[in-house]
């Protein structure tokens, strides 16, 4: 799978309240959530972001609450994925569970600038910066997470297990 898109950059410790503020959590409708994506980090973001865009952030992306609404909102806004130096644990888990592609790469996080066009080869974790002609490598995805992706997320994986039992 190749993901190609334009980059929005964010800093360190982007928390789930910044990704989707709690005041909007009286719904879990993805379209509604997408309208407020990253609003508290950048109030114009919901109107600027275009389908296909990619977030590149520093360390500890998605820290704070366990709300799955955060990766859901990113996905519903049409974004293809997130690259960060590291992810907070629950956000990492949630992203795989719901099928939002995420990649850990120090190099990519340091060298990619806002507005760059990048291309991610999700299968081998190679990130190409088309604007700068550079290439970076993401940390390999653990085998179990790959199994989840292949199954189509945790629910599909669970379905198979229920059928098999």
């Amino acid at each position: 799978m190749i993901l190609k898109g334009k980059v929005w950059k964010f800093g360190v410790n982007i928390d789930t309240d910044a990704i989707i503020p709690a005041r909007y959590l009286n719904t879990s409708d993805p379209e509604e959530l997408a309208k407020h994506i990253m609003e508290d980090a950048d109030k114009d973001f919901p109107s600027k972001v275009k389908p296909g865009d990619i977030i590149v952030a520093d360390a500890n992306f998605g820290c704070g609450s366990s709300r799955e609404h955060a990766p859901i909102a990113i996905k519903a806004a049409g974004m293809q994925g997130v690259i960060a130096k590291s992810f907070a644990r629950i956000f990492y888990r949630n992203s795989f569970n719901i099928g939002l592609p995420i990649f850990e790469s120090e190099d990519a996080s340091d060298k990619i600038s806002e507005g760059d066009e990048i291309e991610i080869d999700a299968d081998n974790g190679i990130i190409r910066n088309l604007t700068r002609g550079e290439e970076y490598r993401a940390k390999p995805i653990p085998p179990f997470m790959q199994e989840l992706i292949t199954a189509g997320g945790l629910i599909e994986w669970t379905k198979k297990r229920i059928k098999a039992s």
Partner: peptide
């Protein structure tokens, strides 16, 4: 803490 989908499963 986990996500909602973990709880569903």
């Amino acid at each position: 803490g986990v996500g909602s989908t973990d709880v569903a499963s």
